[in-house]
Design a protein around this nucleic acid. Structure first.
Lengths: 272, 272
DNA sequence: CGCGAGGTTGATTACTCTCAAACGACGTGG
DNA sequence: CCACGTCGTTTGAGAGTAATCAACCTCGCG
């Protein structure tokens, strides 16, 4: 398993090293503790180890596969075979799953928790393209035989379990189940339509409308209790933290929102 | 055929009708002459008529199919069959080909000329998502069996010939040529990666860098002589006409560009 | 010639980013 | 348990960007 060790470790750093670390963490938008913890874990254990699917897990995996829209009508036997080659990998909060530029080697389905799909600009600004939850897929680019690289990064935004299938196994599976490939294509086109909407929103809406649209979309998908920080809302809207805070407080004053630390509640979706 | 009549027609409009027409044309970013010409043509002839592929055309159609990346390795017989059910449709400059929200009924390949894929916001602002030329496809959403609608509009930006294949025929074709479907999926993923880049550019770059990136990308694809108006560059960059003009003139002063009416020449691509 | 589309320029306004400071909540180390 | 650092949040002031509004130019064409 890949987890931050329970034991506390105390580290003393010289001032300039500490400063550099701070800058790096800021650029990667991660906390120093998590960064160092992951660094240590990486060093000690290498990449997250795949956990072979145990018998007790197999039923759970098949249930997850059933919940995945692109696999919903694949027959039981095929799903069983797929479950055999799948494994569950746990990622801690803020742990990277895919880094932009890496060569795809596996297809993934979120089993539990949330991941963000995002892209960072050279200047360090991040834009969250999508949030995926249980049953939603990513890394589907590995189903392609061309040699391409990941064009976005994926990171867990809370404790997350991810079902992982190696590229080789997934290619074999799709070859035997052409309908799955068709569903993936269909999904990609749907995602393109969402991207088009995001583009046109970015060029034509002001920051407050963009934030409102993000909140509206999140509410539609996740309900009125949203476990996101202002920073995350900002990165989904393409604005800065401060601007987002201002917009959120103004929405609060209008009675549309209730703000708490690290989460917010939408009281009146229709007013967004 | 669907063309602006050669005969000149002089129309006298009352002031308020003229004004409304002007506003409408501005909103749809088309010239009044073309708008009225298309209006008349639509009224007289209905939708653009499909021109049945004549013998002399069939060779040209097959040549086009060969140039289309997603079809490049389909065998000659299949391409011949596809050519049988394909037809060439001519669109005049600024004529709409697909309107957002329409139900897809055909798959299209640009044979000659240029089309823009764009989306308009409710406020009327347009964003040009992509420019397609000979061999590039659009309307591929009609290959899907789900009932969905077009999520962007397509318009000819110069005199353009488009190879059109009905949804039914194209679905039949892809069913017999699964590799084509795989290539389409691959293409969609590539397009997604471009969209990701556009998104991150919009949120992190200033207007001048966005324009520069647009010019750079256009130069890579079309060479140093670009037949685009400032308005079109602006709609690709997500800025206004005026801002784009300012940026272009500043680039001209730096000796990177040469500006002419309706086109521009990139002198030093590396400085963009 | 007169019109309209494309292009240019200036002045003003509005928005939002940036920088800065500060606070409360929380967890951890001591 | 307290002190501390970090994170998430809040607020303010100032700067800079680009949108908006407006006027004007000019080229090409009917």
């Amino acid at each position: 398993m890949f987890e931050i060790p329970d034991k506390q470790i105390h580290i003393r750093l010289s001032a300039h090293i500490s400063k550099k670390l701070k800058v790096k963490c800021a650029a990667e938008s991660t906390s120093m503790q998590i960064f160092v913890a992951n660094l240590i874990a990486d060093k000690i254990q290498g990449s997250p180890k795949k956990q072979p699917a145990e018998k007790s897990q197999k039923a759970a995996i098949i249930e997850l596969l059933h919940e995945c829209p692109i696999l919903c009508d694949v027959d039981e036997i095929e799903l069983g075979n797929l479950a055999e080659v799948a494994s569950i990998v746990h990622y801690t909060k803020s742990q990277p799953i895919i880094r932009e530029g890496e060569v795809p080697d596996s297809f993934q389905i979120v089993a539990q928790g949330l991941v963000k799909v995002y892209k960072a600009s050279p200047s360090g600004k991040e834009f969250i393209i999508d949030i995926r939850r249980r049953g939603e897929i990513f890394g589907e680019i590995s189903a392609m035989d061309e040699v391409i690289v990941h064009y976005a990064s994926v990171q867990a935004i809370e404790e997350t379990d991810v079902l992982t299938i190696s590229k080789k196994d997934f290619v074999t599976f799709t070859a035997q189940n052409p309908k799955v490939m068709a569903r993936i294509t269909s999904l990609e086109m749907l995602r393109i339509s969402h991207l088009y909407s995001k583009l046109i929103n970015l060029v034509s809406d002001k920051a407050d409308q963009r934030v409102a649209k993000v909140l509206y979309a999140l509410t539609c998908k996740y309900g009125s209790n949203l476990q996101f920080t202002h920073k995350e809302i900002a990165e989904m809207s393409g604005t800065t933290d401060e601007t987002t805070t201002r917009i959120l407080t103004s929405l609060k004053k209008k009675g549309i929102l209730r703000l708490h630390r690290g989460n917010l509640e939408v009281l009146d979706k229709s007013k967004l």
